[in-house]
Amino acid sequence: MSETTNPGTANGPTSIRSVFKGDRFGRDSGLFWAAVALLALAGGLIGDSYVLHIFILVFIWCVVIASWDLILGYAGIFNYAQLVFFAFGAYTAAMLSIYADTTPLLSIAIAGLSGAVVGVLVALPTLRLKGEYIALYTFAIHLALPPIIQQGRSIGMGGNTGLLGIPRVELFGTTLSTIDKQAWFWLALAFGSVCVYAVYFLILRRRAGLAFIAMRDVDAFAQAIGVNAVRYKLAAFMISAFFTAIAGGLYAHYTAVVTPKILGTEFFLMAMVMLAIGGMGRFPGAIIGVFVVVIGNELLRAFDDYRLLLLGIAVVLVVIFLPRGIAGAFLGQGGSRSR
């Protein structure tokens, strides 16, 4: 806004260092997989199917939020069309499984790939846009999608009622119905951990991650050192949309139902709260955010009338009092107030 050049450049190197602890890559990977193993073990011990269900949702959300964090938190692109990718993946996978008789796992894979294509298509107009213009444009796409889905009734998108009776996933010769919570728990955990690992470790800790952060913090500098902004913007959208669409496909096959509700206020709000509470651009903030919010949201079920209101209040309060999220407050290297 004013001349905040100093914080920008001062911020840059520190953030980059915090992500690029190349020497700690192995240690952090080990910690990550140990946490996943613990969760997998826990899955065997939890008998309550409701609790399992909540964890399945957590794992699916983790993929969406990690992908969103990649583009919003790390690459600094104000993309608000994340749930569009999710809905696209859910619908594509569901329709392939229902109408084309594709094996569900293949449907999900195809949904991921076509999601990547949609990501690029959404990204193309943003190449010429800056900052808030991107926020407006992408959120407009989000808001414009539900009416289009309703128009899509004629091509089998089910309109307002959505798609019902999505075929079950088959794995190693057994079919997993929505009630097989334990199996779904492990499947979702496997999917989720692989995707999250890919986003935070394989992508963001490599050259691409450095380029994203450089683009976010000092755009001109990034271009000066030869970061091809166009390529990395497209890549950010593509990767982000790919994983999110996979999560959508998985979600569709888990719940066996897809409705335009996944583009509704509640989902969008939830996703935002997760990012805000966890803290953007600082792993594992966003992932912690997912656990806190999904579980917190379930605890709020008792106050259903006030739940959305409380979520809204949570976003505002968290942004005001923990501007860098849980990760920023407890794991970050102090605040970097500008001005």
């Binding site: 926020a135 990012l275 976003v315 107030r337 001005r339």
Partner: peptide, 13 residues
Amino acid sequence: RSWGNWRINTIMA
């Protein structure tokens, strides 16, 4: 406003 990431945070808020 006093935080470096105010742009994204004001959108969120």
